[in-house]
Simulated assay, not measured.
Amino acid sequence: MLTQTATRVLDPGDLDAALAILDREPVANAFVASRVHVAGLDPWRLGGEMWGWYEDGMLVSLCYAGANLVPICATPQAVRAFADRARRAGRRCSSIVGPAEPTALLWKHLEPHWGPAREVRAHQPLMVTDRLPTEAEPDPYVRRIRKDEMETIMPACVAMFTEEVGVSPLAGDGGLLYQARVAELVAAGRSFARIDEDGQVLFKAEIGAATPGACQIQGVWVAPEHRGKGLAAPGMAAVLRYALAEVSPVVSLYVNDFNEAARATYRRTGFQETGSFMSVLF
């Protein structure tokens, strides 16, 4: 047991303590918690290290250090310690993302060493619901993607990612990691779309993170030529119905503050803003 304030890389023996931290804020921590529930704390399976911050021998805060750097229930003192560790290790992540306040503080410490960022999205409303919408009927044509439909859904996923993040997920490794992630969600039954008779994806979304307490919808996308036709709200309602019935009792997502159309759609499907995330993109 650590008897002073310190950080260290957690190992599988720390799983229960780490889950207790993650369970403090199940909605905000859904992304990391979902990975820990599946992979534990082994870095190879988890896809990164889990750093722990201890005060008086007790685990107080976490930071996931993988493709994303994510502060979790992080106090200001913990953020400073995580920033020091990240600075010494050098930047290995493609983004810093998490609840706005600790993420902003983490970036403040790291920007002199890692900056400039490609883009900073300082306010991304976190939206939550625990019930089916009353204003939007679920689209009956939105369904699960089958494993044999990877070639159909993949171009839509790439288009969504490129539009949302500003870079193609096919860069670097040719898209192998991204394709594996899409295939993982399809295999888990958490990828949904409306596909017309010609095989064109009109709407798509995924339940990207899932824990017993909360899940997170991501990758919401409507084909550009079909925007403004009323597909988004019924599509979201359909995915929400699956999520509440089969995955978790609480469903969340976060959205760029400048995307007024998306925020209006999510409000129409019953989501309410309960907090704010921040993303720093490299």
Results as ranks from 00 to 15, higher is better:
residue 179 Q to P: 00
residue 152 T to G: 03
residue 181 R to T: 04
residue 154 M to K: 02
residue 175 G to C: 08
residue 170 L to H: 05
residue 163 E to T: 14
residue 182 V to Q: 10
residue 155 P to E: 04
residue 173 D to T: 11
residue 188 A to H: 01
residue 188 A to S: 12
residue 177 L to C: 06
residue 192 F to R: 07
residue 162 T to E: 10
residue 196 D to A: 00
residue 159 A to M: 03
residue 155 P to G: 00
residue 184 E to P: 00
residue 149 E to N: 06
residue 166 G to K: 12
residue 168 S to P: 04
residue 145 I to V: 15
residue 166 G to D: 06
residue 159 A to N: 05
residue 179 Q to E: 15
residue 156 A to P: 01
residue 187 A to M: 02
residue 194 R to Q: 10
residue 156 A to F: 01
residue 160 M to H: 13
residue 173 D to Y: 11
residue 149 E to K: 07
residue 195 I to E: 00
residue 169 P to T: 09
residue 161 F to C: 07
residue 173 D to H: 07
residue 195 I to D: 02
residue 160 M to Q: 14
residue 164 E to C: 07
residue 148 D to R: 01
residue 174 G to D: 03
residue 166 G to M: 06
residue 166 G to W: 10
residue 189 G to K: 06
residue 149 E to M: 10
residue 161 F to D: 01
residue 145 I to K: 11
residue 165 V to Y: 12
residue 178 Y to G: 04
residue 193 A to L: 02
residue 167 V to M: 15
residue 147 K to L: 13
residue 162 T to Y: 01
residue 158 V to R: 05
residue 168 S to N: 11
residue 155 P to H: 08
residue 162 T to A: 09
residue 194 R to M: 06
residue 168 S to W: 12
residue 186 V to F: 05
residue 160 M to K: 06
residue 177 L to Y: 13
residue 168 S to C: 12
residue 149 E to D: 13
residue 153 I to D: 07
residue 189 G to A: 05
residue 173 D to L: 07
residue 159 A to L: 01
residue 186 V to H: 04
residue 194 R to T: 00
residue 172 G to I: 05
residue 178 Y to R: 08
residue 163 E to N: 13
residue 174 G to R: 07
residue 147 K to P: 00
residue 160 M to C: 13
residue 192 F to W: 09
residue 169 P to N: 12
residue 161 F to S: 09
residue 186 V to D: 03
residue 179 Q to Y: 10
residue 190 R to H: 09
residue 193 A to R: 05
residue 180 A to Y: 01
residue 156 A to S: 11
residue 187 A to G: 13
residue 195 I to M: 01
residue 180 A to K: 14
residue 191 S to H: 10
residue 197 E to R: 14
residue 182 V to C: 11
residue 150 M to G: 09
residue 162 T to W: 02
residue 153 I to W: 02
residue 174 G to F: 01
residue 153 I to F: 13
residue 182 V to L: 08
residue 193 A to I: 07
residue 150 M to Y: 12
residue 186 V to R: 01
residue 185 L to H: 08
residue 145 I to A: 13
residue 191 S to K: 05
residue 181 R to F: 09
residue 148 D to A: 07
residue 147 K to I: 14
residue 187 A to W: 00
residue 167 V to P: 00
residue 170 L to F: 04
residue 165 V to L: 08
residue 164 E to Y: 14
residue 160 M to E: 11
residue 180 A to N: 14
residue 171 A to L: 15
residue 162 T to S: 14
